[in-house]
Design a protein around this nucleic acid. Structure first.
Length: 240
DNA sequence: CAGATCACCTGCTTGC
DNA sequence: TGCAAGCAGGTGATCT
């Protein structure tokens, strides 16, 4: 590959060094680690995080917010990110923040999940968002999972009964499996690498549905702040 | 350790 | 129509 980089997450000096290091490299494997895209190269590792508005498009258009352009033998990967909350890094080995991620929510066993939950005295919503607890869950899916599990976003993790914790585990797996099946949630502009939108936003029960009727009880969905994140839930269906 | 606050950015929507 | 405020899919630093 050859790379042009403008990401503000790399200092200007490092950008040139990174572009030089990437020149002529071959991608040997690409894996997802939670929200990170990790490209194993013939030398070193290229790690990309899309942040909130990042897109990595194969042969996508280049515009004002294209902060990384990777020319490959077949096609060009364009990294576009208006808000610049994403990141591109090149390291010798897997970066610590990727190595330190918690387990995959679709990979962890029920017993491991229950044990990890029991050990934490924090509120359940920020815990689901904590990438060291489980990897890959963001704000949309935390809200949708908690609705499905009928658990209040401010419930204390360690105080959930075994039964309710099991329901949370099931809700997490079901919600994520369904979302993957529908190829994600396109709220305003999210698209996958091929430029395709997802359709899971059509199945959201609480996220983005403030004041609309709950699909279970008909009462209004409420929006509150939990650790400074917009949080949507049904006050009647979801209990601490 | 948990939580609050702020910071990083642009762009879209809402309300006056 | 214009302008300011508020909001957005994420993460990390710093302070209490």
């Amino acid at each position: 590959m050859s790379a042009q980089l403008r990401s503000r997450f790399v200092t200007p000096g490092d950008r040139e060094a990174m572009a030089r290091s990437l020149a002529g490299r071959r991608i040997e494997a690409i894996r997802r680690h939670g929200k990170f895209i990790v490209c194993q190269l013939d030398r070193g590792v290229l790690t990309i995080h899309l942040g909130m508005t990042g897109k990595l498009l194969l042969d996508g258009p280049e515009g004002t917010h294209s902060y990384g352009v990777f020319r490959l033998d077949r096609g060009t990967l364009v990294y576009d990110d208006p808000r610049q909350f994403g990141s591109i890094e090149y390291t010798d080995a897997l970066p610590a923040r990727v190595a330190d991620l918690g387990p995959e929510p679709l990979g962890i066993s029920l017993e491991d999940f229950l044990a990890r939950l029991k050990a934490r005295r924090t509120r359940i919503k920020p815990l689901l968002l904590d990438q060291g607890f489980v990897r890959g869950i963001g704000n949309i899916y935390a809200d949708e999972i908690l609705f499905r599990a009928r658990i209040h976003p401010r419930a204390v993790a360690s105080r959930l009964s075994r039964r309710r914790a099991m329901e949370l585990y099931a809700a997490m797996r079901e919600t994520l499996a369904l979302a993957i099946e529908h190829r994600g949630s396109s709220i305003s502009d999210y698209v996958d690498a091929a430029g395709e939108k997802g359709s899971f936003q059509l199945l959201h029960r609480v996220y983005g549905r403030e004041a609309k009727p709950c699909s279970e009880c008909g009462g209004p969905i409420r929006r509150i702040l939990v650790v400074q994140r917009g949080t949507h839930y049904c006050p009647r269906c979801q209990r601490s």
